[in-house]
């Protein structure tokens, strides 16, 4: 199942590496990723796919020190094709 997440993360390359590692390791496939720097944060929009419940990912991402906010967005089927 596909899910869209909005994540606010500290504006550091290692923060992006760290959360992408978690996405991969916890069994979620990255379908789409966009990020924009703003006020010392990256605002990340990400679409992932997995058979696993999404809370298994959001709960792990929320633990990361550099991650300030994790929001699950309602999925727009047309937007991801």
């Amino acid at each position: 199942m596909k899910h869209q997440l909005n994540i606010a993360v500290k504006q550091q390359s290692v923060a992006i590496e760290r959360f992408l590692r978690v996405v991969r390791h916890r069994g979620f496939q990255l379908l789409d990723l966009a990020l924009e720097g703003q006020d010392e944060l990256f605002q990340v929009k990400m679409t992932v796919d997995s058979d696993k419940p999404i809370y298994l990912l959001t709960s792990q991402l929320s633990k990361l020190v550099e991650v300030k906010q994790v929001e699950l967005q309602p999925m727009q089927q047309q937007a991801i094709g």
């Binding site: 419940p53 809370y55 298994l56 709960s59 792990q60 929320s62 633990k63």
Partner: peptide, 8 residues
């Protein structure tokens, strides 16, 4: 103490 363990 770790919410990520609940339901994992």
């Amino acid at each position: 103490i770790d919410p990520a363990e609940v339901g994992k």
